[in-house]
Design a protein around this nucleic acid. Sequence first.
DNA 1: TATTGTTATACTCTATAACTATA
DNA 2: TATAGTTATAGAGTATAACAATA
Lengths: 152, 152
Amino acid sequence: MKSLHNMPPTDDSGLALAKLFELAVVTFEFMERGLAERGLSRPRATVLWLLHERGPLRQRDLAEAIGVSARNVTGLVDGLERDGFAVRERHPDDRRAALVSLTGKGAATVAGLRGEYDEGAARLFADLGAGELAGFVSTVDRLVASIRAETC
Amino acid sequence: MKSLHNMPPTDDSGLALAKLFELAVVTFEFMERGLAERGLSRPRATVLWLLHERGPLRQRDLAEAIGVSARNVTGLVDGLERDGFAVRERHPDDRRAALVSLTGKGAATVAGLRGEYDEGAARLFADLGAGELAGFVSTVDRLVASIRAETC
DNA sequence: TATTGTTATACTCTATAACTATA
DNA sequence: TATAGTTATAGAGTATAACAATA
């Protein structure tokens, strides 16, 4: 899917918003290409990332962390298990619960993404001066706060 | 869906990329909330936008413009027609083709989105100085070009 | 023959609701 | 009674392939 980032601006802030949308779109495509090369979608990669950050988790914990339904997590973990990225194990203290962990392949995949991420960042921002980089980060912070405030 | 924008940075460019991902995520959520309020998804809104910009189009043209399969466009137009945003008409010169147009509701919806977009832009960038705004736009242009170059 | 859009089929991500096994 | 995760069902968005109508 392309577009919806080609809305013509009506003034300066309109231009800036058009640029922002365009940036969001190409950034998402950039994100997802890297994931797809490793056989991952964004939802599945998010699960792997959480398991890497927080260790083995119950599906319920994953559902809350990601903000999706329990049913959805069942499907995501099914896919990750089928493709060898994660496994369900018995929870030691609660026989209702499954404990989801990374496999070796899952851990290696997260590590690979991490490395690719660092390299990508270095390349992407290579030709920006320190001042421009700092200005960008500061503006992005203000914009993110502003968008979050809209949302409420 | 949340996250995958909370990857901890390893250095300055890593921080900038983390911010970029975060910005992309909140911008997408912001985009899609506005659309959802009008009963639209991003794919469907993209179709409406194209019809608004370029006038009635064949489904084939929509498929090429959006970058999805013909089958996919059939589904999107089905939904838009069912919900009264667009209609299929006979193509005057080619009896194989359907010509998709906006209805009055569709046109009004695009106009409403346009207005909301302008207001949103004004609010979002209100507290950025002219210099900061220009710097942001310029940096975004470089980043977009850089990401597109990666993609090739 | 080539093109337009359909039907047929399938996969992912998403949701709610009913149900099972446990707590 | 409440919770964890499943099955059942549904809908959107995506794809390929086979097919009908038309060019």
